[in-house]
Design a protein around this nucleic acid. Structure first.
Length: 114
DNA sequence: CATCTGACGACCG
DNA sequence: GCGGTCGCCAGAT
């Protein structure tokens, strides 16, 4: 069950950051690449505390469609991320990579009281 | 089995 | 920066 690995991985995504489908697929060596990760996310179960909203397309693009599209935006903004109309601003500064996730963020993540 | 579709990514104009 | 297209694989009809 590869999809299960995807859920475990996205759960490791820290708050205020986001990962891409391709990155996840590549990290888990999913066959089919980003598509496989997307397929797994589409079946993303609820109640397991999976921050699915922290998963976006390459370059921080928001690919989801309503109602999730709107929901993801709301959740991401709630985490302090700055969003454009259809993408994450300064994404490369918030782009999280599996394995590189270590004790601190590469850039200033938190901004004061939220 | 054939066909269409999809929470993707990279390339081209 | 935006839209169109091809490549990739799996699921649903």
């Amino acid at each position: 069950m590869n999809s299960n690995l995807v859920y475990e991985l996205v759960k490791k995504i820290p708050r205020g950051q986001a990962a891409t489908y391709g990155r996840i697929a590549k990290a888990l060596k999913l066959p089919g690449g980003a598509r496989a990760a997307g397929r797994a996310m589409a079946a993303c179960p609820s109640g397991l505390g999976i921050p699915w909203h922290r998963v976006v397309g390459a370059g921080g693009r928001l690919l989801l469609r309503e109602p999730n599209a709107s929901l993801q935006r709301k959740l991401l903004e709630s985490e302090g991320l700055r969003l454009a109309e259809k993408r994450i601003l300064e994404f490369s500064s918030h782009e999280w990579t599996p394995g590189k996730a270590r004790h601190r963020a590469p850039a200033q993540s938190r901004q004061k009281t939220g």
